[in-house]
């Protein structure tokens, strides 16, 4: 293999790991929501977009420092998520194993995504916005490969978030309740775990992870009001790769997707998204009961 090709793979690996770790936060949120609530959040991509715009709003209108702005976006998405779930979704459908209810919830979330995207479009127009980097400049890696401080910091924040999420789910009272609830709903309810608290916490946390992912990536790439649909599909792909309801699976799935995407983007930039999706589709149809086990039903 020529030296330039090797450097291309190396560069793609580095940027793919960075992108994959940040986008895996988005997938982690989707996985958490499905794993606990049994509902696919089709507005997840819209919350990703909202993360970028909330950070931009905090920086440009509230004049907050960038780190505080990202924190603001995380907290605001959490609050907005709670309000949306509380107002939009009938309480009996918050956690449901009935396919009809799940479909209705998916359609309601899809309508919510439309409203959020059009709402942002009305407020900010169709142009793209980008938030400033936390730190400017770049680090030189061996082999003449440069990686920006912003990417390094975003990777560090993603890893910290995963660590915090693991500790929260493992050690906190609510985290333990969430895990118990996802394993055996009836038994958890019998032990005093409240469905509404678990659903609200899970949904709030899930969408705020999506918003955090959007906030971090909007300083590397820009974000527009119509951003979010590709990201929803990407999150779904990562979740099915890593295993539904598995946070560590989302972490690994995100890494795999990020690397595949970056390598295809290096060699065939126009088709990177399409090739990544087609490759994953081939995996889905050739190994339908393996990675996907849970999403197959008898037909």
């Amino acid at each position: 293999m020529p030296a330039s090709a090797l450097q291309g793979v190396y560069l793609s690996l580095v940027s793919g790991i960075g992108y994959g770790l940040i986008i895996s936060l988005l997938a982690g949120g989707l996985s958490l929501i499905y794993g606990v609530m049994n509902n696919v959040n089709t507005s997840h991509g819209a919350f990703y977009m909202l993360g970028g715009f909330l950070t931009f709003f905090a920086v440009s209108s509230l004049h907050l420092p960038i780190v505080l702005s990202i924190t603001f976006a995380f907290a605001a998405a959490f609050g907005l998520g709670l309000i949306c779930l509380y107002v939009l979704i009938p309480r009996t459908m918050w956690v449901s194993s009935d396919p009809d209810s799940q479909n209705i919830v998916m359609i309601l979330f899809l309508a919510l995504a439309q409203v959020l995207q059009r709402g942002v479009f009305i407020l900010y127009g169709g142009g793209s916005v980008a938030v400033p980097s936390i730190l400017f400049g770049s680090i030189a890696l061996p082999g003449d490969v440069f990686i920006s401080y912003q990417t390094v910091i975003s990777i560090a924040i993603s890893i910290l978030c995963y660590a915090a999420l693991f500790i929260f789910l493992r050690d906190s009272k609510i985290g333990k309740a969430i895990r118990a609830f996802s394993q055996d709903r009836e038994l958890a309810e019998a032990m005093g775990v409240r469905v509404s608290t678990i659903a609200l916490m899970t949904f709030g946390l899930g969408v705020s992870l999506a918003a955090l992912s959007g906030a971090l990536l909007s300083s590397i790439y820009s974000v527009t009001a119509t951003t979010g649909w590709n990201e929803l599909v990407i999150a779904f792909v990562i979740v099915t790769f890593g295993g539904i309801g598995s946070i560590s699976g989302s972490f690994l799935g995100g890494l795999v997707y990020g690397i595949v995407y970056s390598i295809t983007q290096y060699y065939l930039p126009a088709y990177s998204f399409v090739i990544a999706l087609v490759l994953i589709y081939i995996v889905l149809i050739t190994k339908p009961t393996g990675i996907l086990g849970e999403i197959i039903e008898r037909a």
Partner: peptide, 19 residues
Amino acid sequence: TIRLKPGYQGIALLLFSQV
């Protein structure tokens, strides 16, 4: 996609329209 649960079937078809 017919072997997938309805929700996942929906997303799988969404994937194709995005492609």
